[in-house]
Structures are given as structure tokens and as C-alpha cells.
Design a protein around this nucleic acid. Structure first.
Lengths: 155, 155
DNA sequence: TGGAATTCCTTGCGTGTGCAATGAACCATA
DNA sequence: TATGGTTCATTGCACACGCAAGGAATTCCA
């Protein structure tokens, strides 16, 4: 079958995305670095801080973070060493481990959060404006729905 | 200074982006995998195929790919081993190495390209529609300009 | 109720990446 | 033209990640 190529404008749009997404990730990482936290660490802290009793099962957390089980195990190793998270085994199901946010971890998140929010604001919200940012979210919502639909259709 | 938080809608938009970007990258990677090429490899092939005489200096290629010099050295190691790229030292400046696309490499790219184009089409262009895809490109163009402006202002 | 299938976490291994150090080549300037 | 600074590529090292295997606990079902 003859492939349908992208128009020049479409290619331009796509390239914009690929290049920008990379730079954006780097910028966000850099803004968080002074607090001694990576984006990965930060996301863990946020999820746990929003969770019931400040804790999540490893497998649920891995799902939320889109991380493989082994990836989460090792990320948590580091965070436990920092004292931000504690592991606790679960009484009702002894296979599962709880990842539990410590007060130190909460403090770390609260210290880093303003920098991160400002970072998103500065790098994304500001250049796009409120309307643009809304479009931005809507567009990715559509892509997301579509991806999930495909996932469910053929797993 | 009191941090200005994001509204719920804004948080939703942002989360949409973070989650989707990850899944999208995974989907694109998966669609290319049957051809034995990663996204990283593919980008190298594309850049070289579009370059003057099918070759680029390592440093320019690293810049184009947003890759560190060492990262590019190793990515090329693999591609040379596959026979897709050859290294050639430069006569006029003996510090530089050319990365030169071989006929085999070009064939590999041409074989993989339709799958990639279809992948972008299916995962992004289709759910967004032509107008949405255009917005998509515009929005990232704005973010990109803004990021580059900051870069130039304070290097 | 007892064995098979499943779920959950961890560990070993391979890979891909960046940073810092290294060495080679080039360039600018005194 | 000699010397100090710059540019370019590579290598050593550390780190983060996924996959596959492993072991323990649970659930399913015949």
C-alpha cells in the first residue's frame, strides 16, 4: 500500500512537538534540581500526598506513575534512603508493600512544589495563555482517549 | 512569596499532557519495533538522509538530535555495527567525524518510514483532526520559542 | 481441599543516557 | 611562531529503566 506522507506543515508541527517535548522536560527537571528532587521523585511525592493515609500499594503506584514494577522498586530505594518514604508490609495481603509518605517527604514536596508550579506556569501557561493552555489539555485528552481505546481494543 | 497554584482544570490539562506524552512515545516506539529500529535510530536515519551528501558532523548531529556527544557516539556505535552508518574522518578538520548514511541505512529508513508515518497519523493526526493537529503544532511552536528565548537570555 | 493459575515485589542483567575527564586538532594572539 | 584557549570525539563512570526470572502469598476451581 502506498504510504500517505505528511504535508510540510504537518511535518513542521510534528517536529515542533518532538523537539519541544524534550526541551520542556529538561527545563522542568532543571527547575526542580535545586531542591534535590527529580521529576520522578516529585511525582511519587505528589501521588502519595494525595493518597488515602499518605500511602499506596507499590503496584498501584507503579501504574499511576507509568513505571515498571522494578523501576518503582529502585526509585523507592532512593527515596527511602532519603527518608521521604517508608515501606510497610500489608497485614491483610502479605504480598503487597505500602509506600508511605513520611513527614520529611511531605515537607520536601511542599518545599519543591512552588518551584514546580512556577516552572509549569512559566514554560507552558505563560507562552500559551489561559485559552491556549486549555486547548493544550483538550488536545492531549483526545490523544489519550484514543490511545486508551486502542489499548482496550487489542491488548 | 506566596505560590499561585494551578486551578483544577489546569492541573487536569497538565496531567493529561504528562501521562499522554509517555504513552504516545511508547506507542510510536512499538510501531517501529517490528522493523528493528528504535525511535532514536530512526531519527538519525532521517536526519542523515535529509543532509547534504547523506552525512553530518557528529557535533551537528548531536545538536539536531538533542543528544549529548557521548550519547551520539554510542548510538552510532550500534548503527555502524548494523551497517546503516559509516564513520569517516574529515580531511579539512581532523577533529571531526562524519556520520555517513549507507545505502543499507537508507533502505532501512525507507522500509520503516511508512510505519512511522502511519503511526503518527493514527495516534495523533486522526484523533485531533487536521485543525487540531495544526493547533497542536502552533502551541508547541509557542512553547519552543519561549524556551529558546529564555535559553538565549540566560545561558 | 488441594493443586494450578495469578498477583505482587524484588533481583540479575542488558541497554541507553549524561557528566566529567582525556586527548587530539584547530585557532587566536602576542 | 609559540602558547593558551577552544572545539570535537571518545571513554570511564554512574544512574535510571525495562524485561525476564524467581519466590512468596493469594485466589480460583474442580
Amino acid at each position: 500500500m502506498e504510504p500517505r506522507w505528511l504535508t510540510d506543515d504537518e511535518q513542521q508541527s510534528w517536529r515542533n512537538y518532538v523537539l519541544t517535548a524534550h526541551d520542556l522536560a529538561t527545563a522542568l527537571e532543571a527547575d526542580l534540581a535545586p531542591h534535590g528532587v527529580t521529576m520522578g521523585d516529585y511525582e511519587v511525592l505528589v501521588w502519595l500526598s494525595e493518597a488515602e493515609e499518605n500511602r499506596m500499594r507499590m503496584c498501584d503506584l507503579a501504574g499511576a506513575l507509568q513505571l515498571s514494577p522494578s523501576g518503582l522498586t529502585r526509585r523507592l530505594d532512593g527515596m527511602v534512603k532519603q527518608g521521604w518514604v517508608e515501606r510497610a508490609s500489608c497485614a491483610s495481603d502479605r504480598r503487597v508493600m505500602w509506600a508511605h509518605l513520611t513527614p520529611v517527604g511531605r515537607a520536601k514536596m511542599e518545599a519543591a512544589a512552588p518551584a514546580h508550579v512556577e516552572s509549569v506556569r512559566r514554560h507552558v501557561l505563560e507562552p500559551l495563555g489561559a485559552d491556549g493552555f486549555d486547548q493544550f489539555g483538550t488536545l492531549f485528552g483526545r490523544i489519550r482517549e484514543h490511545l486508551q481505546h486502542l489499548e482496550l481494543t487489542r491488548p
